[in-house]
Design a protein around this nucleic acid. Structure first.
Lengths: 196, 196, 196, 196
DNA sequence: AATGAATGAGCCTTCATTCAT
DNA sequence: CATGAATGAAGGCTCATTCAT
């Protein structure tokens, strides 16, 4: 529309190019196996430009993480509605998450790499993506309807995300294959773990 | 015992010194944040000596991983006996693993770092520590006694190791605290997940 | 000419600085006796810069060889003209080559070092400087005028370059001294070798 | 025969093993491409042993050179007799040398490598193998019979060894092939070069 | 603002030589 | 005398970041 909007679009586009390139290279070769030069090449952008969008490599990693977390939350809640029953919402979230992880292995790998990298120790990393309110609502409803075990949300969360994570790792690595039926059983088992 | 036994141990001792130093530095600073020079210093050994024990940095990492996996299996099965009931063995293994992870955070962190490092892609890394026979026996007994859901051992394993792993991460990071009672509940919830 | 011409030369200048330094150090201390660090120092350039101009030490060596070969061909043909008689051209080339080798001992030494280094085994080294057309013409004319023995050009070439090379080695090493008259005799003897 | 002779034999054998291994590795990989460890392995001898026979790598190289030079002189004069005519002796020496070089490419390559290595600059290298008296006699007879051009022996030598050397290089490298007839022509051409 | 050449500390690894056994 | 593990300086090369243009 005007001069400024053009620039803004370009800038956002470049930022995205960089993040996309970063995800590809980081998940394939690790943080240290990816030089800023290769990153720039993959993003088809001059090196200097990266530094106009991110203070440095480390900040880029943190930014990518934030991005991935947001994307994951979005995927997780696709089709979510407070109107659904707690069990229905559980299934929805579980399936969404599983599907997302399997169809976005790079995102999954990067997130796990990040989780145990020394980067996380940095105070800067404290900038977490805020957990979505829908999730809070889900737990609240579960407790108030007397469906959940008397354990904290974070523990209940661990009881379902844990197996999911473990399975995604195995399936992605080709160590295990899950039939549609297996998947239902596993999801149901996860429910068993958190349900009274 | 004799004059020679001292000499014999020297080599194994150095190897151990190196692995201990590696675990410390890798878990604190990551693989790439740890130079061979720093490693040597930490192990109080000249750089060249490391190369007499390991072909290179990469091989050292693989060797350490194998070591950690073995140590973990050992810890996991401390006090194990086929004479115990399936449920008793489940509790034993679960608690052993949890305790080991919490009391050996470096081992835990290193193992996770390794799992998602690009190193794992190497065919060489396929050399895995063999899963212990006790674990196989445990699953067999569980199936034959009709206690487990009709899912493969690797899936059942994921259903308990997953939450455990997730919780260790949170507790180690100081994000969650578990009371003794919580822990019992979680373990019980894991049983619920795999039990019919 | 203009402001930019200065800039344009910078790159070529640096490349030259590096090659000059390389020739000096290689001919004095050999390929392996010359570290990239020393090379950089001699060229008065930071190490990293060398790698912007050459992929690595090996490539630098090949590049230098190509350079030397070209320079040598140029020197060889200084004053060459198809109008000269075959014998005149023979003398011209012979003297040019001899003078060049004696006045450029580093080039001579480097070329010989290169010829027997394991580097030459690399397929990459097959990229040779093309032999100049003047040389081909010279042999053609010699044959068609019935002046040369019925041997292939490469053999005839060996019959004159061989003694020349051997003498340069000796003279450079100070083992032999050649008077102006000796030189004429030797050149004439070389002619005898190839002439019918 | 006795205790000492055994040792002597063993020692000489080991020395030979080392020199043979050195020739193989040096000619294939160069001086610097050959570590003392690889050398020891190739010689099937412990590293330490090499140092009992040679003061260090450099001395080993010089020693090998001396060895090669002696071997070459021996080959050169095989079948030599003062009774032969000057021309017959010329042919004998020429053919002997050519055959030796072609059938002993490693020796040839090593000698050339050595000739231009910075090692030669060392005062220690001044230890040359003495030129054989037969060669001196050959030149004397040639001069006194009025067969040779009035040039110093070293120059005459260069006039025949030069082409020979150049041809061996080409033939060994597979760049040129010489028929039996070519060879005769070349030898004859070399004679032309030195003869009045 | 945009570019990408320049920088030099730092990395992993090798190796000639020694010397305790 | 024989051995080969030990040593650590030195080597080739990479790369995050800067800054002149």
């Amino acid at each position: 529309m005007n001069v400024h909007s053009e620039d803004k679009t370009t800038d956002a586009t470049k930022r995205r190019q960089i993040l996309v390139a970063a995800l590809t290279l980081f998940s394939d070769h690790g943080f240290h196996g990816t030089s800023m030069a290769k990153l720039a090449k993959q993003a088809d952008l001059p090196v200097g430009t990266i530094y106009r969008h991110f203070a440095g490599k480390e900040e880029l990693i943190h930014a990518l993480y934030l991005d991935m977390k947001t994307e994951r939350y979005d995927a997780m809640l696709k089709g979510y509605s407070d109107g659904l029953s707690v069990r229905e919402r559980f299934d929805l979230i579980w399936i969404n998450t599983y599907d997302y992880c399997l169809s976005h292995p790079r995102q999954f790998v990067f997130t796990e790499q990040y989780a145990f990298s020394p980067f996380l120790k940095d105070a800067a990393a404290a900038i977490h993506a805020v957990a979505p309110p829908e999730l809070a609502k889900f737990f609240e409803d579960g407790y108030s309807e007397g469906l959940f075990k008397p354990l904290s949300p974070s523990i209940l969360f661990a009881l379902t995300s844990g197996p999911l994570n473990a399975l995604v790792r195995r399936v992605t690595a080709g160590l295990t294959t899950l039939t549609k039926h297996d998947l239902d059983s596993v999801r149901s088992a996860c429910w068993d773990a958190i349900a009274l």
